[in-house]
Write a protein that binds this DNA or RNA. Structure first.
Lengths: 197, 197
DNA sequence: GAACTATACGGAGATAGTCTCCGTTTAGCA
DNA sequence: TGCTAAACGGAGACTATCTCCGTATAGTTC
C-alpha cells in the first residue's frame, strides 16, 4: 500500500534482484556522496552496495546517470516548493526570497551537485538536463508570478535569474559555506531584480 | 635588459637548467589547460615540457601549485585593472560595470579557474589563497570608491560582492558561455548593490 | 680545465580510479 | 524440474597521480 518512491520508475520492469541492486546502489551512492562529495569512487560505491563494478556500470553507464537517479525525488521537491511559494499569496519580495533560499538549500543537498547542475543547464546530452528543465520551469513560474504582480524591473529574464542563483549556490557549495550564508548574496539578487520602493 | 617577468620570483636562485624547466613547464601548462581545461593530465604537461614527471612534481607538488604559478601575472593584471578603474573617475555604475566585466574576463582566462579561485577563497592552506587576497583587495578598492561616491546601498559588503561576481564567473565557465554573456547577470548585481535613481 | 659536490633530472613502478568483457549464476516461467 | 533470458561480478586493460632513487650536470674551486 505504501508508494515505493525510491524504486525505479516504470519502464520495462526489472527482475527482482536487479531492482534490489539498483536500490542498494542509489542508497550507497547517497552515503558516499554525502561523505566524500561528488568525486567519490564509483567502484567503492559498488562495493558498499555489495555488487561488482559491472553491475553498477550496467545500471548507470556514467557518473552523471547515477547522480541523476539519486536526485529523482529532488526534482519533485523543487517543483512542490515552487508551487507552494506561488500559492502562498505572499508579496513578491518575500515569495522570491523564500524561493531563492529553497533553491540554494535543495541544490546544496549533495556536495558538488551545484556544479553538475550548472554544467548540465545548457547541455541537452547530460542526463541531468531534464532535472534542470524542471528546475528552470519551477523558477520561471515563481518569477512570472512576481512579474504579474508588477514587482520586477524591466528586462529581467527568468533564465538569467536562475543562472545567477545557481552561481550563488555554487559559491556556497565550493567555498564550504552554509546555505544560510547565501542570504547576503540573495539580498543583492533580490534588490537587483525587484523595482525600487 | 628586458625584464624576465615569467621567471620564477626571487627566492634562492635556481640552477640554470632548473629555471629553464620551470619556465617550460609553465608554458606547457598554459597550453594544456587552454586545450583541455583544468583537468589536463599532469604527466602529459611534463611530457610537453620535455621533462619527466618527477621534475614537474618537484617544482609543483600539487596541481594547485602549478596553477598558482601559471597565474603569477594574473594577479598583477587584476590589480592594474582595478587601479585603472578607480583612477578613471567614471561614475560608480560605469566603474563597477567595467570592473565586474574585467573580473569575469580575467577569471575566465583558464577553464576551471573560477572554481579553483572560489574554493581557495576561504581556504588559507591553498596556494591560490594569496591570489584571492589580491583579488579581494582589488575588489575592495573599487567597491570602496563607489561607497565614497555615495552610490552604494546600505549594508553592501565588498566580500559578498566578490563572492557573487565569482559565482557569475563560475556560471559562465561551467556552462560554456562566453564572458560577454555575463552581462545580464552583472546588470542584476549592479542594480542590487547601487542605490536606485 | 679537472675535480668536486650540491642540485636537479627522469623514468620505472606503486597506487588508485574508470570502465569492459565474458564466463557464471539465477529469477521467473512453463 | 528444467529452461532461458536477464543479470551478476570480478579479472584485467587502461589511464592518471605521485614517489623513489640511481644518474647526470651546473657551477664552483683550485
Amino acid at each position: 500500500m505504501t508508494a515505493d518512491v525510491s524504486t525505479q520508475t516504470a519502464q520495462k520492469p526489472l527482475r527482482a534482484d536487479a531492482q534490489r541492486n539498483y536500490d542498494n546502489l542509489i542508497e550507497a551512492a547517497r552515503e558516499a556522496f554525502r561523505e566524500r562529495g561528488a568525486e567519490a569512487s564509483l567502484d567503492d560505491i559498488a562495493k558498499r552496495a555489495g555488487v561488482g563494478p559491472g553491475t553498477l556500470y550496467r545500471h548507470f553507464p556514467t557518473r552523471d546517470a547515477l547522480i541523476d537517479a539519486m536526485m529523482r525525488d529532488w526534482a519533485e521537491r523543487i517543483d512542490a516548493d515552487s508551487q507552494a511559494v506561488v500559492d502562498s499569496g505572499l508579496p513578491a519580495r518575500e515569495a522570491l526570497q523564500i524561493w531563492f533560499t529553497r533553491f540554494v538549500d535543495n541544490i546544496g543537498l549533495y556536495h558538488g551537485a551545484a556544479a553538475k547542475v550548472m554544467s548540465a543547464m545548457d547541455d541537452p546530452k547530460s542526463p541531468i538536463y531534464r532535472k534542470c528543465q524542471v528546475l528552470a520551469a519551477a523558477n520561471e513560474k515563481v518569477v512570472a508570478k512576481a512579474r504579474e504582480d508588477g514587482a520586477l524591473r524591466d528586462g529581467v529574464d527568468a533564465r538569467e535569474v536562475m543562472r545567477i542563483v545557481s552561481g550563488v549556490s555554487t559559491v556556497i557549495d565550493q567555498s564550504g559555506l552554509t546555505p544560510a550564508q547565501a542570504e547576503p548574496m540573495l539580498a543583492i539578487v533580490l534588490d537587483g531584480i525587484l523595482l525600487p520602493d
